[in-house]
């Protein structure tokens, strides 16, 4: 029997979607072959949260009651113990900073296979899975598999899978786990000071946005402000491609793509974006894509539902004068 372990991000709060998405994916993967799925929660017990996770297919829960979010290294030892006891074949980790740190550490401790930032998981054969991610610099999606007899692990970013609710799942199973090895004191850093920069909190919410305007290389620097003004009118969030971040025109928190964020808006308007797969993979769950580009052979035309062939600068100017005024 296949055993799947889902590691949830503790105290996720408003960002809890990633947990729902992973739980639902594990549920989907288990349906065909009655695999045993366990959801690992590393936070104080909350019946409310359990019930919420059940809605997405969670049934068996392992709970490690940590008072607050700890350093990644404190979770690693715990998860290693859980693995030794329950011997999962597949582990899903959230693609958050914490999730990735834990996953990379455990992969080394347990000599496991780890595929980071994958955009799809499909069963391959017997107990093996196929993991997809974009290949660097090519317009292809690479499919990766584990070639040794070891645990398969992957990290998945938010918005890769859909958090859909399931029909009733029945009674939940809860098991409390304790870590029987304290983390050595000298390994955990001492926190001297914490400051929260209020200004940047919730500054960028593209992961939750329903409408997103994407800025690519085809947008002139002077036009960016116009696109931002237009976005405000249409209640859209602004996002961009990797090159815009590299040229320090926008912050990384607005980057969509393999090395940025995954988004799932209802509408994505791509201004001057060529459509490289590294960027487009971040939009695989976008419902409608409108591309404004002057090149009708641009890659983005293959992904878009609407293609407007026009000079991006002229289009923005027209749109601006129509909706914002001069």
């Amino acid at each position: 029997m296949i055993r799947i372990l889902v590691v949830t991000h503790p105290y996720a709060g408003n960002d809890g979607n990633i947990n729902f998405e992973l739980i639902r994916k594990a549920y989907d993967l288990s349906k065909g072959n009655s695999a045993d799925v366990k959801i690992l929660m590393m936070e104080k017990f909350s019946d409310e949260l359990i019930q919420l996770y059940k809605r997405y297919g969670g049934k068996n829960f392992l709970i490690y009651e940590a008072e607050q979010e700890l350093e990644y290294i404190c979770y690693a030892e715990l998860i290693a113990q859980v693995c030794r006891k329950y011997k999962p074949n597949l582990i899903l980790y959230p693609g958050t900073e914490l999730g990735k740190a834990i996953a990379a550490t455990i992969a080394t401790i347990l000599h496991a296979a780890l595929i980071a930032d994958c955009i799809d998981i499909q069963p391959l054969n017997e107990d093996k899975y196929s993991f997809s991610r974009t290949a660097m610099n090519d317009s292809i999606i690479a499919k990766i598999r584990c070639v040794k007899d070891c645990i398969q692990m992957c990290t998945v970013k938010r918005n890769v899978f859909e958090a859909k609710e399931v029909c009733s799942i029945g009674e939940e199973n809860i098991e409390f786990v304790l870590s029987d090895k304290a983390i050595q004191d000298n390994q955990v850093p001492e926190i001297l000071e914490t400051t929260e920069n209020i200004k940047t909190v919730r500054d960028c919410q593209i992961e939750n946005a329903r409408i997103i305007f994407g800025i690519g290389r085809g947008v002139l620097k002077d036009d960016i402000k116009k696109v931002e003004d237009l976005a405000r009118i249409f209640h859209a969030e602004i996002a961009c491609t990797r090159i815009i971040v590299e040229e320090q025109i926008m912050d990384k928190s607005r980057q969509i793509g393999q090395s940025g964020k995954m988004v799932s808006p209802d509408i994505y308007v791509a201004f001057g974006i060529s459509g490289a797969s590294q960027h487009m993979v971040g939009l695989k769950n976008a419902k409608k894509i409108i591309a404004i580009n002057r090149d009708k052979d641009a890659m983005i035309c293959k992904y878009a539902d609407y293609v407007f062939i026009a000079d991006t600068h002229k289009f923005i100017a027209c749109m601006y004068s129509d909706f914002v005024g001069d």
Binding site: T134, I140, I141, K143, C146, A291, D305, Y306
Partner: peptide, 29 residues
Amino acid sequence: SKTEVYSSTKPEYRKAEPILLQDEMEEMI
């Protein structure tokens, strides 16, 4: 190595042809 790339696929393009408008600025807006 624990993993290998064993295959590759084309990215998920839209199945239907896109609705294409060219040079008709008013219509596009």
